[in-house]
């Protein structure tokens, strides 16, 4: 089955044959539905309807969208000197030290007030502004990492599962090896080697983070591979690549999506953990975990001292609410798509 030569031959037959155009022109979603008696497209539609009825998942989705929009519109964004996003929800720049220039009466760790709704941090900066802008780091890293790892994992798992045999054996041993390391440990080492920074963090969580998707997709592929429609497509001379990407991969999507939505939360916690350990972004950046690290010492005050809870509660709550929402969305998708086996086994990343 893994012999390329024979596949190529089949491919050639296909070109001169009758099936290829039809296969190619179809919608990716629908090309297998005919053969699988319409059940799967129904699965997506039913899933969508079911998800809409799931109030907690919808609520969580709203939270995530609001947080993402808030981060995006927090401060203007410039690309090469051109303002692409002029809005500014956050009243201050995250680096502005309020008592210098803006308002000399402000002191470090001033409590929340009308003017500074989440209070002031230990350097005299507006926490509300920092929290909004800080969402950019966590959210964007979370989505970018999951996008990269899920895509790569999909390809990796599809290839491994489809070809089977020695290829599969080798590819899965690699995955097993990666699984021997907790994700956070690997990320720590990568950041230690490369230094902190935005893209370093993305790399730290992406470099090995795809393994889970790879294994999942491979399992799905093994299940699907023997299905009639796949066998039929192969018998009709569809090329390997086309079989994998048009027939098998889409079928592996539901569990992949569930895992991805749950993983965003893990990555966000991981990024925050690195920030908290002082190994993530620049120590004055507004990333949520880094902010927690900066105010960590305030939790233990002197006798009778008031803890500036706002400096710890808000960034921590931001991480918590975002991750919780992502998990609720993941659970919602899981229920909706019935991809039950992926709802478990979490925790390896955080």
């Amino acid at each position: 089955m893994t012999d390329r030569h024979t596949h190529d031959e089949r491919g050639r037959i296909r070109i001169s044959g009758f099936d290829s155009d039809r296969v190619r022109d179809r919608e990716p979603m629908s090309d297998w539905t005919d053969e699988s008696s319409g059940e799967t497209v129904g699965r997506w539609r039913r899933g969508f309807r079911k998800f809409k009825r799931n109030r907690s998942a919808i609520g969580a989705l709203v939270v995530v969208v609001v947080m993402a929009l808030a981060a995006f519109f927090a401060r203007p964004i410039e690309v090469f000197g051109v303002v692409v996003q002029p809005f500014s929800l956050a009243p201050y720049d995250p680096t502005t030290i309020l008592y210098l220039g803006v308002d000399p009466s402000v002191n470090v760790y001033d409590p929340p007030s009308w003017q500074y709704p989440m209070g002031v941090d230990g350097s005299g900066r507006d926490l509300f502004s920092r929290l909004l802008v800080g969402g950019r780091y966590s959210l964007s890293i979370g989505f970018i990492v999951v996008g990269l790892t899920a895509s790569f994992g999909l390809i990796y798992g599809s290839i491994s599962g489809y070809y089977g045999g020695n290829v599969d054996e080798l590819m899965m041993r690699i995955v097993d090896t990666i699984f021997a390391f907790p994700g956070l440990i690997l990320a720590l080492i990568i950041v230690a080697i490369l230094g902190g920074g935005y893209w370093q963090l993305v790399l730290a969580f992406s470099l090995f983070g795809w393994a889970g998707y790879g294994r999942l997709v491979r399992g799905e592929v093994l299940k699907i591979k023997e299905n009639e429609y796949v066998l039929a497509a192969k018998a009709l001379g569809a090329r390997d690549r086309s079989v994998v990407f048009r027939h098998i991969a889409p079928n592996a999507m539901p569990p992949l999506i569930v895992l991805a939505s749950l993983n965003i939360g893990s990555v966000v916690i991981g990024v925050a953990a690195l920030g908290f350990l002082g190994l993530g972004l620049d120590p004055s950046s507004a990333e949520w975990g880094t902010m927690l690290n900066a105010t960590r010492s305030t939790l233990i005050q002197g006798p009778g001292g008031q803890i500036p809870w706002w400096a710890t509660v808000y960034p921590g709550a931001a991480i918590f609410i975002f991750v919780m929402s992502m998990n609720m969305i993941g659970d919602g998708i899981n229920d909706a798509l019935d991809a039950q086996q992926t709802g478990v086994g979490r925790g390896g990343e955080d």
Binding site: I269, F276, L299, I300, I307, G316, F320, M324, M328
Partner: peptide, 22 residues
């Protein structure tokens, strides 16, 4: 349970120290 898998452990640890130790 959902909270348990969503809460950052370093955050949880700090809160526990705060409440139970201090």
């Amino acid at each position: 349970a959902l909270s348990g898998i969503s809460i950052p452990n370093f955050w949880l640890g700090l809160i526990l120290i705060l409440i139970f130790s201090l």
